[in-house]
Design a protein around this nucleic acid. Structure first.
Length: 455
RNA sequence: GUGAUUGUAGCUCAGUUGGUUAGAGCGCCGGAUUGUGGUUCCGGAGGUCGCCGGUUCGAGACCGGUCUUUCACCCCA
């Protein structure tokens, strides 16, 4: 058989050791913050039944789900008529499982299936890959990790305030300082639609104004008109899209503007309450900007929505989330309100790389390598190695007595800071040559001295 | 899913209107240096020019298809 060039599927990536060390660094910070706030880990299967996944992300979302062909003779249950009826009819007969598209829907499924064992409010975090059959571009992959934290079974706005704090803590931990958490409320958006006299056109309104950053004020107005908003409605939307000022000013202004809309007023109240909670928590520098034009795609949000953007980088939003009242309703469990959000680790990685924020030193690596001269050296070195490892020093011995140049080069390439020479003279004296690879200095030290120096 | 775009050594890239044996830098391997890496010098290996087909006396170059990369749209982390 001819040798074939190996390859990986479009939009997927390998993560080599350097990348994994950095990714794990990001994961560990996120995980520790989640746990600090009382969230417990959860994992769900890579694949879900398609009945769980389909219909939850809209028509376009359904198309982006990776479907798995049934095992065995997957054509057995199909007929020519199914084939002729097209892929929509054929699909459910040949595929009944799919790869998870996000972590929220599997979570809702889990809550419903375990409703009798769960104590509410239930706080969980979940760090796992998800898959989307999207066409890849910058910052968009077909396989990527999400780090979700959700709390269900409470409508307390303390949760929203805590989420903001978690975002702040994670970013502080990662040394990302220049970012903003854009916050809005779905009720405010429906209040606006109601107020400008276009009730029921909420989705169209959201899709259009979501592009304000990208295409600008005038084009948004054009798009609103294209989407069937009356001249009058577009005219009334103008001052809303132009609103600017501090959070307090914006809140006051929108309160006035939406006074006649029950929904809208409720939305403004909710945001005010979140800011009040932040104050009670003693959080001053929360990075939150109230943004009337933040819409977010997902239709299941009903209250606060937020999105996090790191400033001065070419990457899209790195985190987002919101409150939903009825996520579990589709699975037959109504009235379970919740709020959740997610970090996009792959994008955070790209941001940190672009801003050069990865720590240079404290990434895990071998601290000490023992040089292997010959059989005597190796035997003695293995004994030493055990002692170093016992003492908690990350250490390794070169596995064969290769040329010294090769061994030194290996240590150098791997950025191992110390190398230990164990030759016949050292063994006889019980004093080993420890070389600092950065400065080139070397000393003759006992095992105890080496352990003390490296610890 | 729509419209563009990219692919030559491990990496970054040259390669003239189609013309002999496809090059450079970096990296890799060996030597100078048999117990001292990161500097220097000398030498060496490494290519189905993404893949399949077509045009041509002749294709890395032109044409078609396909895969891949990147980008815009849609949507999204």
């Amino acid at each position: 058989m001819a040798v074939q060039k190996p390859s990986i599927p479009k939009g997927t990536r390998d993560f080599g050791p350097e990348k994994m060390v950095r990714r794990n660094y990001i994961f560990s910070i996120i995980r520790s913050v989640f746990e600090q706030f009382g969230y417990m880990p959860l994992e769900t299967p890579t694949m879900e039944n398609l009945s769980v996944l389909t219909g939850k992300y809209g028509d376009e979302g359904d198309q982006l789900i990776f479907k798995m062909l049934n095992s065995g003779d997957y054509l057995k249950k199909t007929s020519v008529a199914d084939y002729e009826a097209g892929s929509k009819t054929l699909l459910p007969k040949i595929a009944e499982k799919g790869l998870r598209y996000d972590l929220t829907v599997p979570f809702a499924r889990y809550v419903v299936m375990n409703r009798n064992d769960i104590t509410f409010p239930f706080k969980r975090y979940q760090i796992q890959p998800v898959w989307r059959a999207d066409r890849p571009q910058k910052g968009r992959y077909r396989e990527f990790f999400q780090c979700d934290a959700d709390v269900v079974g409470t409508d307390s706005l303390i949760c929203e305030a805590e989420i903001i704090q978690m975002i702040n803590k994670v970013f502080a931990g990662l040394n990302i300082t220049d970012y903003s958490i854009k916050m809005n409320n779905r009720k405010i958006l429906s209040g606006i639609v109601e107020t400008i006299g276009a009730p029921g056109k909420e989705t169209d309104f959201c899709v259009a104004i979501d592009k304000l950053d990208k295409i600008g004020f005038d084009k948004v107005l054009e798009e609103l008109a294209e989407r069937g908003f009356s001249e009058d409605a577009v005219e009334q939307a103008k001052p809303i899209l132009k609103m600017a000022g501090s959070n307090e000013e914006l809140l006051a202004e929108s309160k006035e503007l939406l006074a006649l809309s029950a929904d809208g007023s409720k939305g403004v109240e909710e945001l005010e309450e979140i800011f009040t909670y932040l104050k009670k928590f003693g959080v001053e520098d929360h990075h939150v900007d109230f943004d009337l034009t933040l819409a977010r795609g997902l239709s299941y949000y009903t209250g606060a929505i937020f999105e996090v953007k790191v400033n001065n980088v070419s990457i899209g939003s790195v985190s987002g989330g919101g409150r939903y009242d009825n996520l579990t309703g589709v699975f037959g469990l109504p009235d379970v309100p919740g709020v959740g959000f997610s970090f996009g680790v792959d994008r955070i990685y790209d941001v940190m790389e672009e801003l050069d924020l990865f720590p240079k030193d404290n990434l895990v690596t071998t601290q000490l390598m023992i040089v292997n001269f010959d059989e005597e050296s190796e035997t003695h070195g293995l004994g030493l190695l055990a002692q170093f490892r016992e003492a908690g020093i990350k250490s390794e011995i070169f596995p064969s007595s290769a040329k010294l140049k090769k061994q030194m080069n290996y240590a150098n390439k791997k950025s191992i800071p110390y190398v230990l020479m164990v030759g016949s003279e050292e063994i006889a004296n019980g004093a080993y040559t420890l070389k600092n690879m950065e400065t080139g200095e070397q000393d003759k030290l006992s095992v105890a001295e080496i352990i003390e120096k490296l610890n």
